[in-house]
Design a protein around this nucleic acid. Structure first.
Lengths: 211, 211
DNA sequence: ACCTGAACACCGTTCAAGT
DNA sequence: ACCTGAACACCGTTCAAGT
């Protein structure tokens, strides 16, 4: 019925993912949301991965705008925090690291902005590239770890953490002394807090490369 | 026919994953490998996730044995490199970070050994816990990024990187100057090299917390 | 040019029935 | 006690046929 375009398909996909969660997203459901046959989507995207990558790029819209200009470090820190937030809001997209070449504008802008900040800090080209890859590995990688729990509401999430802590505290203290002693401290704060700590530690390490 | 046990199911699953790749692993295929009905597996494992977690733990067998005793840093570095290697060898298992409480011995040992090393370095309990989470986020997270390419052979992998570099080098140099200038340097070395660089940077950051 | 609909080749999981 | 087999409720994708 409705004339399909790449843009309208992406918009509908975002809505379905938001409504049903990323695990329950399917081409059949997307077809239903578009009031079109699911297979019509294949005229505009090669396959589901191709579509999800376009959805992912839409989630990065504007991500490199108005970053703090105070320091290279503050700019990168904020960019990675935004990248993480975008990924967690649209999980299972694995923006920027899917197989297949990078083809979308916003993911390219993340790369460009990060490299520019590291070069601006005074890093040599090779060090800047290594730093870029390290930041992406931590940021995108941690998303894939946290995505499942991020989908839960706050209550379920803290219950989950409580169960996990209990698992560590019930271990044999002779074989697992540190785990038992620190069980109640595990999973401190929010997943965002833990990511930010890791990011700051990594940035500390990268800062030591600045001449 | 054959009497099924949890252990024999895990062994058969490892063989099927090794043979067909993790994406093509299914309960039906596992049933065939066991010469049993696929649904019989549900008598021994609650679901596919539960089974894969047990498979993952088998891949961690002995992972904390004979770590370097020279320093806390060397021990953790080696442990994380091994954890990454185990994850990449059995991808899609996301060892240590699946939802559901940690219940398996080897993943518990990774936690215990890491916490012990950080406490031994002189970190306070809270700092040790934050450091542990940071290390796991980077290590397990980077696995999930690299798993797809790790499954390719060396030739296909270097071709893939070449295509990605070309995508960056063909950008408009006015809008993407750093990406174009550094395109040929992107994805340097192996994915293992890039992970090790990131790990060393993170360990540098954590070392600065040692009193 | 664009969309439909049947079809192919699969999934994970449940549950009544068998031995 | 343990396993089978039918069944349910789905998947992604292809391709000949329609408009």
């Amino acid at each position: 019925m409705a004339r399909l375009t790449a843009g309208s398909i992406v918009s509908a996909a975002i809505e379905v993912i938001r409504r049903d969660g990323p695990d329950r997203f399917s081409m059949r459901k997307l077809g239903e949301a578009l009031a079109a046959d699911p297979t019509a989507i294949y005229r505009h995207f090669a396959n589901k991965d191709d579509l999800l990558r376009a959805v992912g790029d839409r989630a990065l819209e504007g991500i490199t705008k108005s970053l703090p200009a105070t320091s290279w470090r503050a700019a990168i820190r904020e960019l990675m925090i935004r990248l993480r937030a975008a990924n967690l809001a649209q999980p299972a997209l694995a923006i920027l690291v899917r197989s297949g070449p990078p083809r979308h504008r916003n993911e390219m802008l993340v790369t460009e902005t990060t490299l520019a900040a590291l070069l601006g800090a005074g890093l040599a080209g090779v060090a800047a590239v290594n730093g870029y890859h390290a930041l992406i590995e931590l940021t995108i990688g941690s998303d894939s770890i946290d995505a499942a729990l991020a989908a839960l509401d706050a209550d379920e999430r803290s219950q989950t953490y409580a169960v996990w802590r209990t698992a560590y505290s019930s271990l044999d203290p002779a074989a697992f002394p540190c785990s038992v002693a620190l069980a109640s401290s595990l999973y401190p704060g929010t997943a965002d807090d833990r990511f930010t700590f890791a990011l700051d530690m990594l940035l500390d390490g990268l800062a030591s490369l600045v001449p």
